[in-house]
Design a protein around this nucleic acid. Sequence first.
DNA 1: TTGCATATGAAAATCACTTGCAACTGTAAA
DNA 2: TTTACAGTTGCAAGTGATTTTCATATGCAA
Lengths: 143, 143
Amino acid sequence: MTKPDRQREKLERALHTAGLRVTTQRIAMLRVMTEAEDHPDVAELHRRAQAHDPAISVATAYRTIAALDAAGLVQRHSFDGASARYERVDKLHHDHIVDLDTGDIVEFQSDAIERLQSEIAAKLGYEVVHHRLELYCRKRSEP
Amino acid sequence: MTKPDRQREKLERALHTAGLRVTTQRIAMLRVMTEAEDHPDVAELHRRAQAHDPAISVATAYRTIAALDAAGLVQRHSFDGASARYERVDKLHHDHIVDLDTGDIVEFQSDAIERLQSEIAAKLGYEVVHHRLELYCRKRSEP
DNA sequence: TTGCATATGAAAATCACTTGCAACTGTAAA
DNA sequence: TTTACAGTTGCAAGTGATTTTCATATGCAA
């Protein structure tokens, strides 16, 4: 009955390293976040986590995702008024271009802009903790 | 008893031009928005509007600010999770710094960043229609 | 194995809005 | 001006998302 579960070990290690207690609920939540290819909200996360641990409650789903966020294992996005959505933090930081006609999302990254942001903030006595940059665009007609 | 109230006339005209019915509540709300130097949320707006018209209800504050927004007289901003904040649309385009500790909002404007945004978009075949840039910051401790 | 700080579930509470509804009021027409 | 009525408003109840309360259960260090 000791079939080794490599993924579970990894998840447990990640939780432990983050200084979080290892509970079945947290493993379920982190597993779901790790397997997610989209940006689920807490209700969806809770639904998926129940597949691994049927007893997980909504309250715990909220508390756990907040803990994972605080630990830097996941990232929270609050798109316009809607409920918060999360994603695991694997890839590098990037911003988004939103195609107004098709709804397509294109990722981009600009050190120059990041640098300017820090400079502007510094000039006003601030330090940038994080930012949000979205370009709402349309395809250019003539080349 | 017909002391002419220039500001009130202006507000009434603005409402009328926007195709909105002129009511005391709407005048109060638009006046408060016009006098605001900050970015109040609806609760604060309601508090201030009551100084002009004590009978204004919260529901009306919400309905009115939504109407003013739809009419293009004010602009809504929903910063990360917090309640929506509004500002009159007179001034030039600018972006926002949000103080994570105090909730304060500081405005800034950078031609350099705007230029870079256009360049990046152009490189990807897009044209920027509008954008949204928010810097979530903390006051710098040491100089 | 134990001690206890933490985590959890269930339900109630909170927050930011939104909506139903009956009473009221601009507004435009008569 | 009076009238007619669609648009507005206040109040209260309703929502949906998220947080908190509290009693019970559980990691984990000793």
